[in-house]
Design a protein around this nucleic acid. Structure first.
Length: 522
RNA sequence: GGGUCUAUAGCGCAGCCAGGUAGCGCACCGGACUCUUAAUCCGGCUGUCGAGGGUCCGAAUCCCUCUAGACCCGCCA
């Protein structure tokens, strides 16, 4: 079989998409791909993944000679359903309101929704993904979906029974798939859409008490009519994607398996109600935390791009997201070291420093490397330092860290003096501070060892000489087994029971300083 | 009730989506270096690829059935 594009799943997906579009006979002048951004909780790496992968498809399409753009669409008319972990309780009064109408609790954006969306966009910016930003609030305000809304509401009975048939949800058999934002109290999930008046293009609604999750949300009792092109309101998810695809001419959208049912229904609505052939899809699994639990936007176990980038490079995120799309993934920050090293291995393959026999695998690895670099791979390889080695060194050197770790790496022959690895050392340093906390060990020192330590401290304070031998001799002459004596020294100096060869190490950190540290323990 | 994913060495995992000699890390064993703890380096062992069937010259990989576990949907968005 011949190689498609650059040999990755992304190229294969783009090929499928193009073949389907050709069959449909649609214009290929501009192929839009879309990613929906949740705006009601802290955006985690899975949300970022949706957009990053869509961007990958955009790149593949461009690579195949087509014009393409990524629409990043913020669902900021969605209502706030519960207060995310760690957010102020004052949000309670805003429950059930669209997140774009809730003030930003941090005060830095024009709304709660924009605060959340901006976090995700910041993540995209920092890994180098380009996008066209759109938001639900503007889309509905401008009436961009009004034709689709009109068609959907006219067919609501047919859609309602189809939803019940396809996914077993009976709700839309009796109510319209449209939520009005109450013009009196600004709440969205408290309104019931009673009737659609096609001639006026208005939805008649009333605002009543509602239960969302654990919370009882009071309605204000208001009754009114909402103009689908002007008033604030939105379609239910079961039909909203379809309207958006048709209005924006979207040809591709990935989705997580949690919204599989919604996508199934929306595909049908697009095809049969709106007469717009639904976009091509790919389904991906959720990222789970290390216990196998779903990472929840509103729970605490969230891995954000911002946090990840404190410890890893943008490339480590892109590698995570591009290496494969299938399969459930348990994800934690402890995956960073592996991904950092894997990127280097990939780079070695790309530049031919590592031989790969299987030509298919070579193509695939090279392709993956290119996508991780957003199809603009560097012309020369970077400097490779094993990430965990950098973390280990960073753990030892806390003061004046970058300089000392770099010096050590140079001594080890890992890097040349002129190499710039400061960024890597900083990343590794933060990783070591955050995750590599050493257990505080209780140090047991008997009298013989204490005597030996005092003697050693005195010798170190004088002329150091061959420290390794001095330590060994001091232990022996005081009747302390060298093994125990070394262990005590590691505990005093590093807080661990083992470490690098200790003589040269003491020279590094200073004999006098070590002597002082020893004296504090005897 | 509906759906998806996972199962590979003692442990943790990659390889599967484009079939071509079963891999990595840790652990373990041997060796080197060290009058010398630890580290380091070199070499080695470890497998009915969950079970059964099918396709194929050839299957961990593709197809079907089954078993076990996890997750999602069946509120809402």
């Amino acid at each position: 079989m011949s190689v498609i594009g650059r040999g990755t799943w992304i190229d294969k997906l783009a090929r499928e998409l193009l073949e389907r579009e050709e069959q449909l006979g649609r214009s290929l002048d501009m192929i839009r791909v879309e990613s929906g951004l949740g705006a009601s909780g802290i955006p985690h790496i899975g949300s970022l993944g949706d957009a990053v992968r869509a961007y990958g498809v955009k790149l593949a399409l461009q690579d195949a000679g087509y014009k393409s753009e990524l629409i990043a669409y913020s669902d900021d008319l969605d209502g706030l359903r519960k207060i995310p972990e760690g957010m102020p309780d004052s949000l309670k009064e805003h429950l059930a309101k669209p997140v774009s109408l809730i003030p930003d609790p941090y005060g830095c954006h024009d709304s709660y929704g924009m605060h959340m969306s901006s976090m995700l966009l910041d993540g995209l910016d920092r890994v180098g993904v380009k996008y066209e930003f759109r938001r639900a609030a503007d889309t509905y305000k401008k009436g961009l979906l009004s034709e689709q809304i009109h068609t959907i509401l006219q067919n609501s009975a047919k859609i309602g029974s189809k939803i019940a048939e396809m996914v077993g949800q009976s709700k839309y058999e009796t109510s319209l798939p449209y939520f009005v934002v109450c013009e009196n109290c600004e709440r969205l999930y408290t309104t019931q859409s009673l009737e659609y008046i096609p001639d006026e293009r208005k939805v008649r609604y009333s605002c009543k008490d509602a239960v969302i999750g654990d919370s009882q949300i009071p309605g204000c009792g208001h009754e009114g009519e909402a103009d689908i092109a002007r008033s604030l309101g939105k379609l239910a998810w079961k039909v909203e994607f379809a309207a958006r695809w048709a209005a924006f001419d979207v040809r591709f959208e990935a989705y997580g398996k949690d919204i599989m049912d919604s996508v199934k229904v929306n595909d049908w609505v697009a095809d049969e109600i709106l007469r717009y052939a639904h976009p091509h899809h790919v389904k991906y699994e959720m990222f789970l935390d290390k216990g196998g639990k779903k990472i929840s936007k509103s729970l605490g176990n969230v891995i954000t791009a911002q946090k990840w980038l404190e410890f890893g490079t943008p490339e480590s995120i892109l590698l995570l997201l591009y290496k494969r799309i299938t399969g459930a993934r348990e994800l934690g920050f402890d995956d960073i070291p592996g991904l950092m090293n894997e990127y280097n291995e990939l780079e070695d393959v790309y530049f031919g420093r590592t031989k790969v026999e299987n030509p298919a695998k070579l193509t695939k690895s090279r392709g993956l490397y290119e996508y991780v670099n957003l199809l603009e791979p560097p012309s020369v390889p970077g400097i490779h330092v094993n990430y965990m080695l950098a973390v280990e060194l960073a753990r030892i050197f806390k003061e004046d860290r970058v300089t000392r770790v770099v010096k050590k790496l140079t001594e080890y022959g890992v890097i040349k003096e002129s190499d710039d690895v400061e960024n890597l050392v900083s990343l590794a340093g933060r990783y070591s501070d955050e995750f590599d906390r050493q257990e505080t060990v209780h140090i047991e020192i008997d009298d013989a060892a204490k005597k030996a330590l005092r003697e050693l401290a005195g010798k170190l304070a004088g002329s150091p000489g061959d420290i390794q031998n001095i330590i060994y001799d001091t232990a022996k002459s005081n009747g302390v087994p060298p093994r125990d004596f070394f262990r005590i020294l590691y505990q005093i100096i590093l807080g661990t029971t083992r470490g690098p060869k200790i003589g040269p190490f003491i020279s590094d950190i200073g004999a006098q300083k070590t002597a002082d540290a020893i004296m504090r323990h005897v």
